[in-house]
């Protein structure tokens, strides 16, 4: 199966988020960037499918040259080749359109995204990409088993899950469950060496335009100091929740 894994390049989950002094962008100073955690589930599932069914796994990111270490990491984990679309991602629909052009040039049978990127938390790209392509979408996807041009895919719904029957090609929005945390692949020394010579193609963007743009960023107001309550006087907590916080 020919699989495309869409990788978003995001601040590490431990990063303290700061904005530039004009408040217009993320201050990337000192921030470590990683493969979006949801995309790691997708990449691992793609590699497992590749071991069963053959084919190729291609990683793609829309971004400037600064995203290449993240793509190299995907190659080190096991992707066969990588594509960087040379455009600054500024809006999920712009990204989806750029990705759609990669998909249609490559005759992919499956596209795996993450259910959302933990930077701007849009959660838009998977279903937008599927709609541009006219393909089925399963998001958040917590299980995927292909058989003979079709697949059974599980999707998380509020309070449960559902199993869908779809025809391929399709787009998935990956989440934990698609593979388990313990199955996640990490780069080993051999993978890191091999990644240096695997192909990373830079593709010119189609020039898709953004439909929205950030005006400013700020940090949420911090909580006021915590009120500690004596463990022997839980009625005091109940009273505060009722009278002060008014939540019960």
């Amino acid at each position: 199966m020919k699989i495309l894994v869409c990788i978003s390049h995001v601040p590490d989950t431990t990063a303290k988020i700061q904005f530039t002094s004009d408040a217009r962008a993320l201050d990337a100073n000192g921030v470590q960037f990683v493969i979006n955690p949801y995309d790691e589930f997708g990449l691992t599932r793609a590699l497992q499918l590749n071991e069963q069914l053959g084919g190729t796994v291609t990683a793609v990111t829309v971004g400037d040259a600064s995203v290449e270490p993240t793509l190299r990491k995907a190659l080190a984990i096991g992707a066969h080749d990588a594509v960087r679309v040379d455009a600054l991602p500024s809006d999920p629909l712009q990204v989806a359109r750029e990705l759609a052009s990669v998909v249609s040039e490559g005759a992919y049978e499956l596209v795996i995204c993450g259910q959302e990127s933990i930077d701007y938390n849009g959660g838009i790209v998977p279903s937008a990409l599927a709609e541009i392509l006219g393909w089925p979408v399963v998001t958040p996807c917590i299980g995927f088993d292909p058989a003979g041009g079709r697949a059974k895919a599980s999707r998380e719904i509020d309070g449960g899950k559902e199993v869908l029957d779809i025809a391929l090609p399709a787009v998935l929005g990956a989440k934990k469950g698609l593979v388990e945390e313990s199955e996640l692949r990490i780069p080993n020394m051999r993978g890191i060496m091999a990644a240096r010579t695997k192909p990373l193609v830079v593709k010119a963007p189609t020039g898709a335009t953004a439909g929205s743009a950030p005006v400013s960023f700020s940090k949420p107001a911090g909580k006021s100091a915590v009120q500690m309550i004596d463990a022997q006087n839980l009625d005091a907590l109940v009273k505060k929740l009722h009278e002060e916080a008014k939540v019960i």
Binding site: L93, G122, I124, S127, A130, V137, R155, I157, A210, S212
Partner: peptide, 24 residues
């Protein structure tokens, strides 16, 4: 609304309706 189904819909509706989309 950003329920599980709502979140799945937003991107596809935006494409279909020729709209932009702002989530969260």
């Amino acid at each position: 609304s950003g329920t599980a189904n709502g979140r799945a819909l937003m991107g596809a509706v935006a494409v279909r309706a020729e709209a932009s989309v702002i989530s969260n």
